[in-house]
């Protein structure tokens, strides 16, 4: 454990996303922590972390990666692999590092960290969008079935 000179009583945190921010997780309070306590981001050596993918890293319980903000969300973005062109617009503009991209491919959404801000939907360039907002409790298959059809471009004469 990466905690030194401190008897922090950690709750079991094997299931990622179980620990809610500020939800009284069994830790001593911030005002009870003694001087010299170290809360590190990783277990053990963190050298070369820039070259490790998230799944290869040894996150400690103090890294916010192990926490979840899923409860912030009202609507969730749903990803439709069939329409996606892997432009990675959603990846570069996601404020919550929640777009899972590996080897230039968009794989899905990290629902533990997504706050449902809808930026990814806004920046999606496909027609119809390959990311759309659905109710938090919506079923994936039902959402995909309810996907809108491709919108035809308005003819110039109609525009005028």
């Amino acid at each position: 454990m990466s905690v030194e000179s401190q008897d922090l009583n950690l709750c079991a945190n094997d299931n990622r996303g179980q620990l809610q921010l500020g939800a009284g997780s069994g830790l001593v309070g911030w005002d009870e922590v003694t001087q010299g306590t170290v809360l590190t981001s990783f277990e053990g050596d963190a050298t070369g972390i820039a070259n490790k993918k998230a799944e290869e890293r040894l996150y400690s319980d103090f890294n916010s990666y192990t926490a979840s903000v899923a409860s912030w969300r009202v609507n969730k973005p749903v990803f439709n692999r069939d329409i996606c062109i892997d432009c990675q617009n959603c990846w570069v503009w996601c404020p919550d590092s929640s777009i899972l991209s590996r080897d230039k491919q968009m794989l899905g959404i990290d629902y533990d960290h997504c706050k449902g801000c809808e930026v990814c939907v806004e920046v999606c360039p496909t027609n119809p969008k390959s990311l759309l907002m659905f109710n938090e409790h919506a079923d994936l298959d039902e959402s995909l079935a309810a996907w809108p059809e491709k919108k035809k471009k308005a003819k110039k004469s109609e525009e005028a």
Binding site: A50, N63, A67, Q88, W91, V92, S97, K104, H113
Partner: peptide, 14 residues
Amino acid sequence: LKEFSTNNDRFEGA
């Protein structure tokens, strides 16, 4: 962007 997206985030969510 595709090349850029192969980077591993060092700023975590939540």
